[in-house]
Simulated assay, not measured.
Amino acid sequence: MSFLFLGISIYSQEKKHFTGYSNILQSIIPNQKTDFWILVHNSYGKNQEVRTVGTKKDYIPQSSGFNLFPDENGFFYIVSSSAGKLEYITDLSGLKTFIGKIDNAEEAAIMLTSEGYFVDEEFNDLAGNYSEDGKNYYLEVGKLTSKECPYQKKHFNITVNKATGEVTGTRDDGTYIELYNKKCTNNPRLLKIEKKEPPKDEPKKSNPSTKRR
């Protein structure tokens, strides 16, 4: 029996990859009952309805929204209707309220974006994973720690309690990206090798081979 429980424990903590910001947002379970809600992605001025739950009604396309990744192209927003009242969710604060209680690992990842963490799709082996057990979600996510020279990302292991939605543990796993450009004064590739101090002038020695006349 002990082997069975051990197997269940290991299986329950198996790592899984997050599969893109759109899929993360589609996993939202709203905190309150809605007549309908729509997830919209705007890219280069074009709106695409990514997910529609319920029977939608006419709404006004938005010109701004939220991102789950630093410097992401385009943005998302949510149109929601509750008791016949339309609401437009265009920032992370409103998104957090819309989500309310954390129901899954995707919602936990969304909540962490307000603290500067993000799922890094390009490096999801390091900063785009999660596992869970009966008590917690364990998320491996990235964080942009410097936009200056050098541009730097770190990855963190964050523990989120399922019952309360609170972060109960944060582990810094170190830097996984550090980029320099030509303008960086501290670019190690451009730093000149320190010049050695020139030797001090030594007194000239007389030439013993000088011929005597």
Score class of each variant (00 low, 15 high):
113 T>E: 08
51 R>G: 10
112 L>G: 13
173 D>S: 05
21 Y>W: 05
75 F>E: 02
42 N>I: 08
198 P>D: 13
12 S>T: 14
66 F>Y: 15
109 A>K: 09
71 D>T: 10
117 Y>T: 12
122 E>F: 09
88 Y>C: 06
106 E>I: 09
179 L>D: 00
5 F>M: 08
5 F>H: 12
67 N>V: 13
109 A>C: 07
146 S>F: 13
201 D>W: 04
69 F>L: 14
179 L>E: 08
64 S>K: 14
97 T>H: 10
130 Y>W: 02
75 F>K: 11
53 V>D: 01
165 G>S: 05
169 G>F: 00
102 I>Q: 13
36 F>W: 00
28 I>S: 11
107 E>M: 07
12 S>Y: 00
24 I>W: 01
128 G>E: 06
127 A>F: 00
31 N>F: 03
53 V>N: 01
183 K>N: 03
143 K>N: 14
16 K>S: 05
38 I>R: 13
121 E>Y: 06
158 I>V: 03
18 F>A: 08
156 F>R: 15
74 G>N: 11
53 V>H: 07
181 N>Q: 02
179 L>Q: 02
159 T>I: 06
100 G>K: 06
52 T>M: 14
73 N>L: 13
180 Y>I: 03
92 L>W: 00
144 L>H: 05
60 I>C: 10
38 I>N: 05
6 L>E: 10
184 C>F: 10
164 T>Y: 05
38 I>H: 02
106 E>L: 10
191 L>I: 06
83 A>P: 05
37 W>S: 09
12 S>C: 05
18 F>W: 00
114 S>L: 04
79 V>P: 13
67 N>T: 14
97 T>K: 15
73 N>W: 09
113 T>M: 04
101 K>F: 11
41 H>Y: 09
125 D>A: 10
24 I>L: 15
98 F>I: 14
76 F>C: 10
3 F>E: 15
133 D>G: 06
213 R>G: 07
136 N>V: 15
80 S>N: 14
70 P>C: 12
1 M>G: 06
88 Y>R: 12
30 P>N: 05
82 S>V: 12
196 K>I: 08
115 E>M: 04
179 L>C: 06
6 L>K: 12
206 S>N: 13
144 L>A: 05
159 T>Q: 07
165 G>Y: 00
51 R>K: 15
119 V>P: 11
170 T>G: 12
41 H>K: 14
33 K>G: 01
204 K>S: 09
74 G>P: 07
25 L>F: 05
131 S>K: 13
174 G>S: 03
150 P>E: 04
63 S>E: 11
39 L>N: 15
61 P>T: 09
176 Y>Q: 07
153 K>L: 15
76 F>T: 11
41 H>E: 00
121 E>C: 11
106 E>G: 11
25 L>V: 14
73 N>Q: 13
79 V>W: 03
